[in-house]
Design a protein around this nucleic acid. Structure first.
Lengths: 204, 204
DNA sequence: ATCTTTGTTAACCTTTTGGTTAAACTATAT
DNA sequence: ATATAGTTTAACCAAAAGGTTAACAAAGAT
């Protein structure tokens, strides 16, 4: 029906605008007026759809963060060899971040400012996912396929190498003189470089 | 003289308070009243010392960011072998960040929000520093001491592994269940783990 | 002693910002 | 046609936040 279509389109325009503004400015820096403008609507209408800034933010944060925490499960449960899994994880994760390059800064910055709130509202069953990956790594170590090292450190290395470049992107572009296209290409190379770098380091 | 001492002590209390608040909340989230309270003074006095929020922020940002951008020069110009330099760089940098763990998120988040402003006001002669390090790496590659790879990628890997853990610290603590002490220990181990990880990967 | 400069405060002003209201418009069902 | 429920807006409000003023205190300089 026409009605539903229109409701959806307005709501979607709001969500799209809110996402853009929140990702760029963060919760504290975002202005409701700015969101309304970018959605092409009146500010009151914003409050009609989402009672207040907090509710709107939470909606966006939920959506964005659910994407940010990668579904490692798929990769782990596949029956590839460990190195293949690392390759796939890095490559797919970097690829996803490339399409949402503001995501890491947004999520981590907000968690940074309100870790307690984050823990209470968003941290459901993320623990097991990490634990499973760490577990698998430890198995490979015992089988002597890879060097002995802290699985936690290795995991942190992996995500650091994938995520950090997007957090440092503006700084990196300014200091290296790369433009958007060149940066994209640089990240493209990284999809292969990062897993190679990791595997080279841990293989026995 | 007594006079100067008192001026300094008030100004220093302001700067200390401002640093704390800006590092925790960022420019947009920081409140002048909050800074005044934490410095134990009237809000008007804040404006007496620093004309406005922007000026105060700039003062803090300058100070913090100058620390954040490490003086690689020292390390590079020393006549250690490359691997020694990498070890020293990582270890010293992680050590410094451990004493200022909010620094990375603060600097990068602000650069992220206003890259243009940052470029104009703060980006003086940082280029050469990076270039020099990259240059040295390329020399080692030609001497076949290390594997051939993009020096830019390698440099980005290095800083990623050093900096990212502090950006993800709150998230990591929540998801791994580490407390402050355990995290500190974890980072302590990292001072050796990171350079080891890198060297293991690049050595020929 | 008193004049001047510097430091400090309480009270006030202005702008920004999140949020509300009441009225108008739209579409659909009766 | 008209009642009704949902959508949209202009105008408004209250609180928060940045910033200013004018008066007062402290310390030196004359």
């Amino acid at each position: 029906m026409v009605k539903t279509e229109k409701i959806d389109s307005t709501q979607e325009r709001i969500l799209a605008a809110a996402k853009r503004v929140f990702l760029e400015q963060g919760m504290a820096g975002a202005r409701m007026q700015d969101i309304a403008d970018k959605a092409g609507i009146n500010k009151a209408l914003l409050h009609y759809y989402f009672r207040n800034k907090d509710k709107l933010f939470e909606t966006i944060f939920k959506e964005v963060s659910s994407q940010f925490f990668p579904k490692i499960t798929d990769v782990i449960e596949s029956d590839m060899p460990l190195f293949g899994k690392i390759e796939r994880f890095c490559s797919e994760y970097i690829d996803m971040l490339q399409k949402n390059s503001f995501m890491p800064m947004f999520v981590l910055s907000e968690v940074h400012k309100q870790p307690q709130r984050f823990k209470e509202r968003f941290w459901k069953n993320m623990g097991p996912v990490l634990a499973r990956f760490v577990g698998e790594i430890e198995v490979e170590m015992k089988k002597n396929k890879i060097k002995k090292m802290s699985a936690g450190q290795l995991f942190l290395n992996m995500v650091s190498l994938c995520i950090f470049p997007f957090i440092a992107k503006p700084l990196w572009m300014v200091s290296s003189g790369m433009d958007e296209a060149r940066f994209k290409q640089f990240m493209e190379e990284r999809k292969k470089e990062v897993p190679k770098f990791i595997i080279e380091s841990i293989k026995n």
